[in-house]
């Protein structure tokens, strides 16, 4: 084989691999990004159907109900403008999960308008709090009565 042809083959191989990798990355990026939404945005229909997303908000006081026989737990997530979404999960709730504290759950909406969570994360204490969550919560979910609360 002539050196020139060999070089062409190498270049083609390189292009092929770069092209293949970008196609893979593009495809993976499309399907696997999890956006964080507040209840208001969800109720306004901003989230496409059947998409896995993260729902952030405050756990409503007195809304946590546990099944007497199974792992199932239900609670209501709200923002400070009165928008509410019911969340149901059969996973262990995290140690720091509490009513009137913020949480983020990952999952999707079912046909009845209930959010089925595959994973529930609680508000971390100040040191381990995800920054993005801190910002969204500071904007959306600070209870109006407790404005000085450290999030």
């Amino acid at each position: 084989m002539k050196p020139r042809n060999k070089r062409i083959i190498f270049v083609l191989l390189a292009l092929l691999s770069v092209g293949g990798a970008s196609a893979l990355i593009g495809k993976a990026m499309k399907g696997n990004l999890n956006y964080l939404y507040a209840p208001e945005e969800v109720l306004a229909g901003k989230v496409p159907k059947d998409q896995v997303f993260r729902l952030g908000g405050l756990v409503k006081k007195g809304s946590l109900q546990r099944s007497k026989t199974s792992m199932e737990a239900r609670f209501i997530v709200m923002d400070n403008r009165g928008n509410e979404i019911t969340v149901v999960t059969d996973k262990i709730l995290p140690d720091l999960f509490q009513e009137e504290k913020s949480q983020v759950s990952r999952g999707k909406m079912n046909a009845e308008g209930v959010f089925v969570a595959e994973e529930v994360l609680a508000k971390h204490d100040s040191e381990y709090m995800p920054k993005e969550l801190k910002e969204v919560l500071a904007k959306e979910h600070t209870p109006p009565t407790k404005t000085g609360d450290k999030l």
Partner: peptide, 10 residues
């Protein structure tokens, strides 16, 4: 927006 890139992507 705020997104997280999860294990499925990787």
């Amino acid at each position: 927006g705020k997104i997280s890139v999860g294990p499925p992507y990787f």
